[in-house]
Design a protein around this nucleic acid. Sequence first.
DNA 1: CTGAAAGCGCTAACAA
DNA 2: TTGTTAGCGCTTTCAG
Lengths: 346, 346
Amino acid sequence: MEPPAQARRVTIVDVAQHAQVSTTTVSKVLRNAYGTSAATREKVQRSIAALGYRPYAAARGMRGRTYTVGVMLPDIRNPFFPDILDGLTEALRETDYQVLLGPGGCNDEPAEARVTEAMIDRGMDGMVLIAPVSSRPHLERVARTVPTVVVGPHGNSAAYDTVSDDDTLGAALVVGHLVGLGHRRIAHIEHAESDPTRLADMPNAIRAEGYRRAMREHGLAEEIDIVSTTYTQEGGYLGARQLLERARRPTAVFAGADIVALGVLEALDEAGLSVPGDISVAGYDNTSLAALRPISLTSVDQAGRQIGAEAARLLLGRIADPGRGAAHVRLSPTLVARRSTAAAGG
Amino acid sequence: MEPPAQARRVTIVDVAQHAQVSTTTVSKVLRNAYGTSAATREKVQRSIAALGYRPYAAARGMRGRTYTVGVMLPDIRNPFFPDILDGLTEALRETDYQVLLGPGGCNDEPAEARVTEAMIDRGMDGMVLIAPVSSRPHLERVARTVPTVVVGPHGNSAAYDTVSDDDTLGAALVVGHLVGLGHRRIAHIEHAESDPTRLADMPNAIRAEGYRRAMREHGLAEEIDIVSTTYTQEGGYLGARQLLERARRPTAVFAGADIVALGVLEALDEAGLSVPGDISVAGYDNTSLAALRPISLTSVDQAGRQIGAEAARLLLGRIADPGRGAAHVRLSPTLVARRSTAAAGG
DNA sequence: CTGAAAGCGCTAACAA
DNA sequence: TTGTTAGCGCTTTCAG
């Protein structure tokens, strides 16, 4: 009457015995490898089902693949990431690959490095790095070790594929929208990047540059007004406070991210200003937040699912042929106008 | 001038050679195992650093541990989970364990099973299942295979530890708060559970029962009014629409989750009703959403970080001693009153 | 088309 | 305290 202890795991050997074949054959069936007859294949599959066998990924990883792809996501709170993940997991659902997520810190480079290292140590067959803040050399080192796709505009590296959204266009969409509503004093809140080596690569810098360019193209070079804080709710709050102290207040604020826009809304509310009556506010990312009734934020939609699906496609290709040239896919965002923006001076 | 190909991974053998010791010794140093002199230990550590050696988790997993704990989270969009994760990762930061997340579907039992299986296959040393919807037998099967902690009120199983919040108390806090504000017609929106086998275990059922009990205790048994939808924004929206059609409209709505409350707010807004002027609304979970100015939702705080930290503590204990008795920790929630609730009839 | 055997990197008896 | 050795479960040459 002992408790049945930790039941020993069913192994490939058990399956081989049960099916009266060699372990090699079982292995081949598992991997749909070339060189097994239909009859054998079926026999083995029956044994697998009968015994409830499941391949042990760690053991597979010692020789071949782990059938696992690691996804590093820097900030689990950012509501833009789930969409990417959905696209990713859906695209991988029909494959043998399993997605595991690594929680990177928020804008925390050491934390990111820990996660990528941990994933390499755990034999990931491929990795997707979502909006990493790590330096380019680090990314390339990772990519040289394991097939890698970076989501976000991280330059035309030959070591990894990238999927990104055209943030220059996105910024132009916002500015165009606001100009169309009659706004001229349109301010922008950006995320300040301290590390100059990667400055030009980051979405925030690109959005800010897109804002500048669009303002110039609309003949509003004089009105360019950028506040540098951070892509957080607090950053938005503090940025808005700065803007409200201006002698000439902006009539519209383009926040570099939805979460920033929320902070802006908070500051405006506190100052007794109404949106969009007194000031129009636009965000970026079209997160689920933006769609909420009481917020109803005009934003830029990055088509996260599509980004994720594209990343999955690229990664599978790269796993199949690690040596192939790098692909850099750029998707176009769309503007989603909501109630937080309205005609100027209204 | 060949490209340096995939540089071979540095192994324990390389370290042993470099340090002029056996692989056993290196292995011992890695695991801080008993039986190495300080001098040897230091020598080995220098070699490890010099060669940039990192243990290969898959290989470790074949014999001992992978130093990986798997966290299954059912719905990455639920803003309550990041807090739990924070508590969890922080508690594990100083250990050798790495956290990897498995994306379960939303209320999708097969998806959950896939993730737990995948984690077992990948040799996780322990697992934390956050608010699983899987059946009790499945959970016990998992727990029998690998040390497991379940976050959520999933009964007093002897096979796994649980950390949960006292939802009965939480519901009572909300009802008490509303009654204190003079409300009597207090309705509740719950998540309908179809599977009867786990009905009593789920938080939604407990919250609903807590609501019922609290109403009775306040002498409001007659006013008990429960709408069954789902714990989603849409569920809240639809639930509120039903409530608005009542002959005697409730003056307060207790939504079983913040996300549900958002749907309620949307429906009320659409109906031209003001909050809290016409109707008070309370949620549950005190997610970051609730704190947002334009929402400012009264809610119940579950102390997610604390839950996560507790789960980590229990899991480490269970990994160290898988046979030890199951612990069931219950934490007390607190009420966070915000602007979405106010005196009745005001 | 199938199987025997070597070995991936590491840990855990057991000896020395 | 240290080293030798035998695997963990699987994939992969290489013969049959």
